[in-house]
């Protein structure tokens, strides 16, 4: 059986790469150190592939025909998409994919109540570009498998559906992938923000700190009871629910302790920025 060798999550707010210096020096230090710690953990895990689960942001699919999850099965992945370059201010990156692993994941995950598709090529905005840049993963040459998630186009697979998808993902990794493989999981998105909505310039710091403390407690049933999709939407419509990608990771690994590495509410970033890692 394959092993889930590391599991982490972080925000992917574009301000973290695009206008990092708008934060105080202390906030820059805290967030920079957290991403460095995630990068070290990924490097030390000797992974055969890292799965990054992230909101698609209506980038690869039109809203009238929107899948719940899309697995990137290509041999190479590159970014960021051209239009996002001046906004994100990250170096271009090209990373190896893991087509065999990705196809097995896709074939085993497709066909239940959720709509799961696959794609050879995908466009990436902040969803993949911020984490791979800030952790240094973009240059580590570890194979990447992007999994794009619908966190924002109604009807969104909610907290329990996302967690259940994660449970199936965990089972497929452990039972269907070749023995000895080491897989990493990275939930990318959140925390509170409302892109394009009336609270676009606001952060719900109280929700964010509450959510992170709930995760640190490690009781997943409590997380699912309290940190509902509805509660996420109340803390910033359309954006905060990217935390559903964190729930996918939690479903895959099961209950484990979680360390909160940072949290900063920088007004100019327009998004609560935090990062966690689970002890497996």
């Amino acid at each position: 059986m394959a092993t889930i060798a590391t599991a982490v999550a972080s925000a992917h707010a574009p301000g973290v790469t695009g206008w990092f210096e708008k934060a105080s020096p202390a906030a820059q230090q805290s967030v920079g150190d957290a991403f460095t710690a995630l990068g070290d953990q990924i490097a030390d895990a000797r992974l055969d592939a890292l799965l990054i689960i992230a909101n698609d942001h209506i980038e690869n699919y039109p809203p009238h025909d929107y899948p719940d999850f899309a697995v990137g099965v290509g041999a190479r992945h590159s970014g960021p998409d051209e239009w996002f370059k001046p906004w994100l201010n990250v170096a271009d990156y090209e990373m190896p994919g893991a087509p065999d692993i990705a196809r097995t994941l896709f074939e085993q995950l497709a066909g239940d109540s959720l709509r799961v598709v696959s794609a050879e090529t995908m466009k990436f905005d902040d969803n993949i570009s911020v984490p791979v840049t800030m952790t240094g993963f973009a240059t580590q040459k570890i194979p990447l498998i992007p999994i794009m998630q619908n966190c924002t186009v109604p009807p969104v697979p909610d907290h329990r559906a996302s967690y259940a998808f994660g449970q199936r993902l965990g089972r497929v990794i452990r039972e269907e992938l070749p023995p000895g493989l080491r897989i990493g999981l990275y939930g990318s998105g959140g925390l509170s923000h409302e892109p394009g909505g009336p609270r676009y310039l606001s952060i719900d710091e109280e929700f964010d700190r509450w959510f992170l403390s709930l995760l640190a407690d490690g009781d997943h049933e409590q997380v699912l009871r309290q940190a509902t999709h509805e509660r996420m939407e109340a803390a910033g419509a359309g954006g905060t629910a990217e935390l559903l990608s964190w729930l996918v990771v939690m479903g895959a690994i099961g209950e484990h302790p979680c360390d909160v590495l940072c949290y900063e509410a920088v007004p100019d970033w327009r998004c609560g920025v935090g990062a966690v890692r689970w002890t497996l």
Binding site: I58, G196, G238
Partner: peptide
Amino acid sequence: HPYSLAQLARLLYGTVEGAGA
């Protein structure tokens, strides 16, 4: 959709490098 609104705003007004609000 609000995401499309935010992107439409950037398409119409421009993306300012290094800008927050």
